[in-house]
Nucleic acid binder design. Structure first.
Length: 580
RNA sequence: UGGGGCGUCGUCAAGUGGUAAGACACAGGACUUUGGUUCCUGCAUUCGGAGGUUCGAAUCCUCCCGCCCCAGCCA
């Protein structure tokens, strides 16, 4: 009568070390059971898929543990930040499906309080104004193995430091003339603790505070205090900040802030065939190597959106990759899988011919047009059916015909019969060629009137089914085929002093014009997604697609077993030749 | 030669002393009016390595090896 626990029915609840820490904290009664997290981007660029992982983590934690997640702009470097980025970040987080409600904050709103904290640090004898130049500071800092030396300005009086810091704020000094440093330990084994700079002078307008300030706090000083001010319980960041945790804790301990959040670090996302450092993405945009932040080849959220990705697919991806501390690189194929999985369920099917080859059905009555029934989505009968026009002249895909087909090629060839999806069986009787080039310019076929709809009453089978578009009714379109932006699995890999842009994939964008779509597509609106049968998922371009000028982006191809077989056959042939 | 981290299938990743989940990829097969979808099947006798503790170790201990991060007045 012993019944094992009935767990198989439960869907696997995502588990990771961050969730475990929070669950344990909750169980221990820490923070009065509150969970407060934050997503803290610097508005100096557009959000990318790595940020999406962080967004899903922070907002997901708040959602699942009954807490809240703030959106906070970490805007302490006026030279790089702008309102354009703030706007794009808000749009992208919302599009991802997350809601910060009224909890949007800016570190720049804390400048006055941060200044007050700095004064307190000086008063406690824990900070000083240093006149060493940037170069000298670096020199005095020591190296990884050698301790640093104290600055000659390290021991001035509190009163003098207070006066100097006030004058820094008042604008009495030029950029770089001096900085405010925390007074910790120049011999600390952790270099971050060797009297880190916490304020620098920058006579630069800030996109939000304008000219109110000419001194700006550094990240290490700003971040922990902003977290504390907002009552964070868990401050989740990426691995490279692990060294900074000691300073994060030192500042809050020294200032004795009532709220001291726990910093937890996780591994940032890396994706194969992709670069994800903001510096590099900015470079791609600035050098015009892509059309902009939302170029459909960019790994930005706006790029994926324009490419035709759904928030669901991206969230799902972020769920599947997990959260851990080991530096890792996720296969871009997983991302594509997540997209197909989502689009397969929700997307209407449609026929489109990208590289048209004209076919004349010689025994089909001239001038006759039939409306044939087609299923919109075999995955979801509720999506209904539509009618597509058929006539004597149609287009099929160029690569669906071969004059001298290899084994296992199931498509059209001289004398061979195939099915036109939802239409008729046709047999190729002649391939018309350009006498000059030998190129096949048109196919002449016969059709079997008995096979209307695609089934033969005599039970006869065909091996292949082709998509097609009636020449008379086709809508013209431009279709952009995208591939990985980089041809290297790891574009960052520095080999032979090559720059990452040397690995840009020359075939990452192929724009096809003169594509033929079934007529219903003429009404497509920007952002509409479809499956072009046998080809892939496509999305009407949000910028360039308009009535009379259709532009579609390929979001992702369908799985292509034939391509795999063809590739294998080629490999076999090669192997055979070299073997003799 | 300093400090901080990390090493489980090709790629991610569970596992927290009781005898290696899952996903993607890959390989077979079934079904199919998308060479799509779906469905079966296979895919780590072994957890960076070597010792040790234990009835029992991916999990504990010791040593070794490898990889990542830190010397911005960036975040």
């Amino acid at each position: 009568m012993t019944t094992p626990d009935t767990k198989p029915a439960e869907a696997a609840v995502p588990t990771n070390f961050v969730r475990q820490i929070i669950a344990a904290d909750l169980a221990a009664g820490k923070n009065d059971g509150r969970v407060v997290t934050r997503f803290p981007p610097e508005p100096n660029g557009y959000l990318h898929i790595g940020h999406a992982k962080s967004i899903c983590l922070n907002f997901g934690l708040a959602r699942d543990f009954g807490g809240v997640c703030h959106l906070r702009f970490d805007d302490t470097d006026p030279a790089k930040e702008s309102m354009e980025y703030v706007a794009s970040i808000q749009e992208d987080v919302r599009w991802m499906g997350f809601d910060w409600q009224d909890r949007m904050f800016f570190a720049s709103d804390y400048f006055e309080r941060l200044y007050g904290f700095a004064v307190r640090l000086i008063e406690a004898g824990k900070a000083y104004v240093d006149h060493l130049s940037a170069d000298e500071i670096r020199e005095y800092r020591g190296t990884l193995t050698a301790p640093g030396r104290n600055s000659p300005y390290r021991d001035r009086s509190i009163a003098e430091n207070l006066d100097l810091f006030q004058r820094m704020r008042a604008g009495e000094f030029e950029d770089g003339a001096c900085v405010l440093r925390a007074k910790i330990d120049m011999a600390a084994p952790n270099i971050v603790m060797r009297d880190p700079t916490i304020y620098r002078i920058k006579h630069v307008d800030h996109y939000r505070t304008g000219q109110a300030w000419c001194i700006y706090p550094m990240y290490d000083f700003t971040h922990c205090l902003s977290d504390s001010i907002e009552g964070m319980t868990h401050s989740i960041c990426t691995l490279e900040f692990e060294n900074n945790r000691e300073l994060y804790n030192w500042i809050l301990d020294t200032l004795k802030t009532p709220c001291h959040p726990q910093q937890i670090e996780f591994a940032r996302l890396n994706l194969s065939y992709t670069v994800l450092s903001k510096r590099k993405l900015i470079e791609l945009v600035d050098k015009g190597l892509v059309s902009g932040w939302d170029d459909p080849r960019m790994p930005t959220i706006s790029g994926y959106r324009r490419r035709g990705y759904t928030p669901e697919a991206i969230r799902n991806f972020c769920e599947r990759i997990g959260v851990a501390k080991a530096a890792s690189t996720v296969d871009i194929g997983l991302m594509e899988f997540c997209l197909r999985e989502d689009l397969n369920k929700r997307t209407p099917r449609v026929m489109a011919v990208l590289r048209p080859l004209k076919v004349t059905i010689v025994n089909y009555p001239e001038g006759q047009v039939e409306e044939l029934d087609a299923v919109n989505n075999p995955e979801d009968p509720g999506m209904g059916t539509r009618r597509v026009p058929f006539s004597r002249e149609i287009f099929i895909e160029r690569e669906d015909f071969m004059e001298d087909p290899p084994k296992k090629f199931f498509r059209l060839a001289p004398g061979r019969e195939v099915r036109l999806r939802y239409a008729y069986f046709i047999t190729c009787v002649e391939a018309v060629k350009d006498p000059a080039t030998g190129e096949v310019t048109e196919l002449r076929c016969t059709y079997d009137p008995q096979t209307r709809g695609g089934d033969a009453p005599d039970g006869r089978k065909v091996q292949g089914t082709l998509h097609w578009v009636s020449a008379l009714h086709a809508a013209a379109a431009e279709v952009r085929l995208y591939d990985h932006l980089f041809s290297r699995e790891n574009p960052d890999e520095a080999d032979g002093g090559r720059h990452f842009t040397d690995h840009l994939n020359p075939k990452s964008l192929e724009a096809l014009t003169g594509c033929k779509l079934e007529p219903g597509l003429a009404l497509a609106s920007p952002g509409d997604r479809f499956q072009f049968e046998r080809l892939g998922y496509f999305c009407a371009d949000a910028r360039d697609c308009r009535p009379g000028h259709l532009v579609f982006n390929r979001s992702v191809t369908l799985r292509d077993t034939w391509a795999k077989i063809a590739k294998k056959e080629v490999g076999k042939k090669k192997g055979g030749v070299s073997g003799t």
